[in-house]
Nucleic acid binder design. Structure first.
Lengths: 204, 204
DNA sequence: CAAGTTTTTTACCATTTGGTAAAGTTACGA
DNA sequence: TCGTAACTTTACCAAATGGTAAAAAACTTG
């Protein structure tokens, strides 16, 4: 029985990464169907058949991207410490989300594209990976509320609102930059507003 | 000199509408590039060349959709009355936005797709139509704040947060329905949460 | 360094897709 | 009701696109 999966060589690891990086930029702004293999190839300085050498097909690149990025994208949520100070834990999470919107807008938009279009390639992953994590965090929030540490509210909707507001700055940047031009202190203004907002909401 | 623009016939008006309706459903879930003329044609029971008879090309359908829907999409913002009760005016706006997320998720996702991908076909429209409206509403909010009617904060970011939270329920429905299954009272829970949230934020 | 293996490149192909030409059909005003 | 303009359908096409075949080049290892 021959081994079907060999461990990847140095070149393989490197080139797959180059491909993912180029594909991330393109998929996140043009969507899956709006991106061609030729575009990806040119963006990473390779030839089209070379992409297919590393990935079975176009969809495999997209799926690998989603899977690879999913866990680091969710890691801040997992970092919420049940034994820490509730308000500070949540605000810390919000700050990390704002930071990620600023540092990794491509990742944010990649997921936004995928979800807006009905998550055709990610639904199973949402079920299996995100859902348990989400439920656990809802549990932590619920306990903090029951203990009177933060205001009582529906934990799930609280998380939704945090995601909505923080990711909005990455996903809708095209709109925001039209409505609020004069770039320099926009990020700080956003951070301050969001912190103020959730502090108010969460204070019992 | 022959007239270049004739007034549209009854059939023209009807069929253009049929096309727009079919295209709205497809563009909003598959994006512009992810939707084919054949799909649109089948969805509205026409043949492909017939689409081209009514619209110059595929892009013209998309542009017409965006333009046609833009103003009704923005109308609730314009309905905010500067002389009304500030808190109630804003909460009323938020309620209408939540209602629109529920009744017109296709429109919401159409715009979301467009903006996430950098608004390639809508940037001018954002500048010319949305921006003035947005600035005016920011002015109204600022005045309410100065008068001490609502809490002091950055008006633009307040509007962003309202858009983010309300549209999130339409745009990210695929995710929400995984995380919060058992559909029946989700909409009411969302309404209640959002109202509670912004009431807290806005109360001085 | 020679033999084998991995990686890259060139040339190509089948399908999809946006769009056209033109004949056929229907609606409608005089 | 007849002629014309509006509309629909059939048959087609060229370009774009995802993907393949196979030779050439580069790298690895005994």
């Amino acid at each position: 029985m021959t081994s079907t999966a060999r461990k990847p060589s140095r070149i393989q690891t490197e080139n797959r990464k180059r491909i993912r990086d180029a594909a991330l930029g393109l998929f996140s702004t043009h969507g899956f169907r709006g991106t061609t293999l030729d575009q990806i190839a040119e963006a990473c300085g390779m030839h089209k058949p070379n992409l297919i050498y590393y990935y079975e097909n176009k969809e495999a690149i997209h799926i690998d991207l989603l899977n690879t990025l999913m866990e680091e994208w969710l890691s801040p949520l997992d970092a919420m410490n049940p034994d820490g100070d509730p308000l500070e834990e949540i605000l810390g999470y919000i700050r990390r989300k704002m930071e990620m919107s600023r540092l990794y807008p491509r990742e944010s938009r990649l997921f936004a594209n995928e979800i807006v279009q009905g998550a055709p390639r990610m639904l199973p992953h949402l079920e299996s990976t995100l859902k348990p994590l989400f439920d656990r965090q809802c549990g932590i929030l619920a306990k903090w509320m029951k203990d009177g540490k933060i205001a009582e509210m529906h934990p799930a909707h609280l998380i939704f609102s945090i995601w909505a507001v923080t990711q909005h700055y990455a996903d809708f940047e095209a709109q925001i930059s039209v409505l609020l031009p004069g770039d320099d202190k926009r990020a700080r203004g956003a951070d301050q507003f969001v912190e103020m907002m959730f502090r108010k909401v969460l204070t019992p």
